[in-house]
Simulated assay, not measured.
Amino acid sequence: MDKQQKINRFLNSQPPGVVYLSSWLTENGFSTQLLNRYKKSRWIYSIGSGAWMRMGDKPTYQGALFALQEQANLTIHPGGKTALSLLGKVHYLELSIKQITLFGRSEEKLPAWFLKYNWGLKVDYYSSSFLPSNIGLQNLEQGAFNLLVSNPARALMECLYLVPKKQELVECYEIMEGLNNLRPKQVQELLEACSSVKVKRLFLYMAEKAGHDWFKYTNLEKIDLGKGKRSLVKDGVYISKYRITVPKALENYE
Rank of each mutant, 00 (worst) to 15 (best):
S128G: 08
R54K: 14
R42D: 13
F103K: 06
L93D: 02
Q62G: 15
F203E: 05
C159D: 12
G63K: 03
Y205I: 08
G56V: 15
K122D: 12
Q14T: 12
E141Y: 14
S85Y: 11
F114S: 14
S22W: 05
V199I: 13
S127P: 07
N28S: 11
Y242G: 08
E158I: 04
E189D: 07
E177G: 04
G17T: 15
S49M: 04
V163Q: 05
C194F: 03
L21Y: 11
S231Q: 15
L148K: 09
L34I: 10
L182P: 07
H91M: 11
K241T: 09
K39T: 14
S49I: 08
N134P: 00
K40N: 01
S96Y: 10
L115P: 05
A83P: 06
K122C: 04
I244Y: 03
I100C: 03
S85M: 05
E208L: 09
A210D: 05
K109Q: 12
K39W: 10
Y61I: 15
S13Q: 06
M176A: 03
K209Q: 02
G80D: 10
Y253Q: 12
N28G: 14
W119N: 10
Q69D: 01
I223S: 04
D235A: 13
Q71T: 09
I100L: 11
L140S: 00
G211Y: 04
K209S: 00
L191D: 14
L179S: 09
K229F: 00
E141L: 15
S196L: 07
K3Y: 03
K81C: 06
M1R: 13
W52I: 00
M206G: 03
A207S: 14
L140Y: 04
Y20V: 08
L232E: 10
P111D: 09
N36V: 09
D57S: 07
T26C: 05
E177W: 15
A193L: 01
Q69Y: 01
V233W: 13
Q14H: 07
G136S: 03
S41E: 12
Y61C: 12
K98W: 01
S85I: 04
A155V: 08
E108F: 00
E171W: 11
S85D: 11
L121H: 13
N252P: 01
L110D: 10
K229E: 05
Y126S: 13
S195P: 11
D235W: 06
R243M: 04
S127M: 06
V163A: 10
S196R: 02
C194N: 06
P15Y: 01
I97G: 12
L84P: 14
Y61L: 14
Y20G: 07
K40C: 00
I7Q: 13
F130C: 05
N146W: 10
F203V: 12
L137H: 04
L93N: 07
Y161N: 13
V233I: 15
L202R: 00
K229Q: 02
M206V: 08
L156H: 07
L102I: 06
K3H: 10
K6C: 09
G136K: 00
E94T: 15
V237T: 05
L190N: 09
L160S: 03
K98M: 03
S129M: 08
